[in-house]
C-alpha cells in the first residue's frame, strides 16, 4: 500500500486551480469533468510522478463548518515541504499571499502558515538538516 493522493477541500475549483498552479507553482495533473465538479489534481513540478493533491469541492454540508473551525483556530489543512521557509514566504508575500503565521523556528523545523484563498490554511516547512544538505 502506498499514499498516492491527498486532498484539500476548496471553495472554488477554478480559483483553486489558478492559486495552486500560478501562485504556489504546482502543475496540473488531471482535470476530468465529473458532473458539476471536476476531478482536479496537481503535483509538484519537482516530482511530477509523486503524490497528487486533489482540489476537492466543498459541496458537502459538513465541509463548511469543518473548514471554518479549523481556519478560525489557525490550523492548516495540509503541509508542503520547501527548501527554505523564509525565502518561500518572501516569494509568496510578493505575490499577495497572506500569512497567518510568519516563519517560526520550532526546534529543527521551521514553519509558516498561509491562506490559500479557497478556505484553507496551508503550512510550509523545512527541516534544518535537510535544507543544509
Amino acid at each position: 500500500m502506498r499514499i498516492n493522493l491527498t486532498s484539500v477541500f476548496v471553495d472554488d475549483q477554478e480559483k483553486a486551480a489558478r492559486f495552486y498552479t500560478e501562485v504556489l507553482g504546482f502543475v496540473e495533473k488531471h482535470d476530468v469533468p465529473l458532473g458539476e465538479d471536476r476531478w482536479l489534481t496537481v503535483v509538484s513540478s519537482q516530482d511530477p510522478d509523486g503524490v497528487e493533491l486533489l482540489l476537492e469541492p466543498s459541496g458537502h454540508p459538513a465541509v463548511g463548518p469543518f473548514k471554518e473551525a479549523l481556519v478560525g483556530d489557525g490550523i492548516p489543512a495540509a503541509q508542503f515541504a520547501v527548501d527554505d521557509v523564509h525565502a518561500e514566504c518572501e516569494r509568496l508575500r510578493a505575490l499577495g499571499v497572506r500569512f497567518t503565521q510568519e516563519p517560526v523556528e520550532m526546534g529543527p523545523v521551521t514553519t509558516a502558515v498561509f491562506d490559500d484563498t479557497c478556505g484553507n490554511l496551508i503550512q510550509i516547512a523545512h527541516h534544518a538538516e535537510a535544507s543544509s544538505r
Binding site: 483556530d73 489557525g74 490550523i75 492548516p76 497567518t100 503565521q101 510568519e102 517560526v104 520550532m106 526546534g107 523545523v109 514553519t111 502558515v113 490554511l121
Partner: peptide, 17 residues
C-alpha cells in the same frame, strides 16, 4: 515575542519552545 497569534501557533510554540 510576537503579538497576534492563532491558537495553532500558540500551541506549537508552547510545545516546541
Amino acid at each position: 515575542a510576537r503579538d497576534g497569534q492563532t491558537l495553532f501557533e500558540l500551541c506549537a510554540r508552547l510545545l516546541t519552545q
